[in-house]
Amino acid sequence: MSNVDIRIRKTESLATPDELIKKFPVSEEIASSINLSRQVVNDIIKGRDHRLLAIVGPCSLHDRKAALEYAHRLKDLAEKVKDEMYIVMRTYFEKPRTVLGWKGLILDPNMDGSYDIGSGIAIARSLLLDIVSIGMPVGCEVLDPIIPQYIDELMSWSSIGARTTESQIHRNLASGLSVAVGFKNSTSGDLSNAINAIQCAYNPASFIGMDRSGASTIFRTTGNDCCHLILRGGDNSPNYYEDDVESARNMMIKSDLNPAIIIDCSHANSRKNYDRQKRVLRSVVDQVCWGEKAIKGFMLESNLICGSQKIPSDLSDLKYGVSITDGCLGWDETERILIRSCEMLHRSFQGDGQSMPL
């Protein structure tokens, strides 16, 4: 009688990253565009580019058609605001859960608990490829440490979530990722775990993982000097105000870190009310206009249509363009507040110093 894998019900083979990359290849032209967008993001984090990094998009992606429509709209908007903002589309395929819930398109693409992960990874890579092909940079949250081997060459920015910031596995992974990585503060609001994570990721690390051929491999990293802090609030207490940013900046400087901060306009900063995101953005822009150099950007949860919906038993009842996870701002409001924010920033950079309400 075997005493191995006694709680494993079934195993299934999975395509290797190399196999999927051959199926959905990245052309030299697209690779060059991604490298350029990565450099812009890095320059913003490092303070070499004065623009704000704007991570904008749905809380999670679940519908290919809606995601591509959103990407095309966002690409047009990015051109309008390019002098003051550099937009990266939020393309989240993995959703960490406190207890239960839909875990994202990669793990459960059919949204029915069937967990067709192989199809989910293929859908994610092909969708990212379609989005970057129109010139829209993408950013993802890294949750499963193996998934980056399938999609990392397509990303221009990445984040580590509040629930995984303390994980040594994710800190090691961030130290070897080819993109800038933002660490969110803990769900409690504590900043020390995220700052410790940034320090760890700045330094070289060695860890075990899977390479693109599917083989177990030891990765030895150089360290990632473009890591930064994401303030997302905690325990329903926002932390985007001036005093909060000042405290975070001073903590990073004390730890000999580049004081680069991105403000998450959603989650606890908006008290889980998607419409309050514009209040957070207004504060962010106002602080930047008044000279806060540590703020390098913001995150905004936005979709084609505002609000959210539960996954129905009959998927044909899903509303098009509406989030199935956290509530999002609708497109019209997203466009309005981003353009207005750029007007405020432009006035500030021109020396006016005046701001006007969103």
Rank of each mutant, 00 (worst) to 15 (best):
R9F: 12
N185T: 01
T334G: 13
T16R: 13
S341C: 12
L53E: 15
I8R: 03
I305C: 06
S247M: 14
S114H: 00
L304H: 07
R64T: 15
N3Y: 14
M299P: 08
G291S: 10
P204T: 07
H50N: 15
S270W: 06
L20E: 10
I117L: 09
L281I: 03
Q287I: 04
W331T: 03
G57W: 07
K293M: 15
S159W: 01
N250T: 01
G101W: 08
C227P: 03
S316N: 12
L36C: 15
A71L: 08
S175I: 02
D63L: 15
S60C: 14
R347S: 06
L173N: 02
M155G: 00
V88C: 10
I34W: 11
L358A: 03
V179F: 04
V280T: 08
E335C: 14
D5M: 10
A31W: 05
M299Y: 09
Q277H: 09
S188T: 12
K310S: 13
K75F: 11
Y202I: 00
G233H: 13
H346T: 06
G321N: 08
P17Y: 09
V138F: 05
A197M: 01
W331E: 06
F298N: 07
I6E: 11
L128S: 00
A201C: 00
R276N: 11
G297L: 10
P148D: 07
A124M: 08
A294F: 04
T334R: 10
E153S: 10
T217F: 07
G118W: 00
T325V: 05
E242W: 12
V99T: 15
Y92E: 08
N303P: 09
S60F: 11
S355C: 12
T16C: 12
Q149A: 04
I339L: 15
S247H: 14
S348N: 05
L105A: 04
S316V: 02
H170K: 06
I21W: 06
I134A: 07
M251V: 01
S2L: 14
L36D: 15
L358K: 00
L107P: 00
P204N: 09
V142W: 09
S313W: 09
Y70C: 10
R90I: 05
E12G: 13
I45Q: 07
A215G: 05
K46Q: 11
Q354S: 09
G321E: 05
V138M: 05
S355Y: 08
R9H: 14
K272G: 05
M344Y: 03
I117E: 07
V81Y: 02
L338T: 04
P17S: 10
S178L: 01
L329W: 03
A260T: 08
M251C: 13
S167T: 03
K103F: 04
S32P: 14
S355T: 15
L231W: 14
K319D: 13
R90P: 11
W331S: 04
S316I: 05
F349I: 09
G214R: 03
N273E: 14
G321W: 05
S167W: 02
L358M: 10
K95H: 07
I146F: 11
N110P: 00
F207T: 03
D144W: 02
E69F: 08
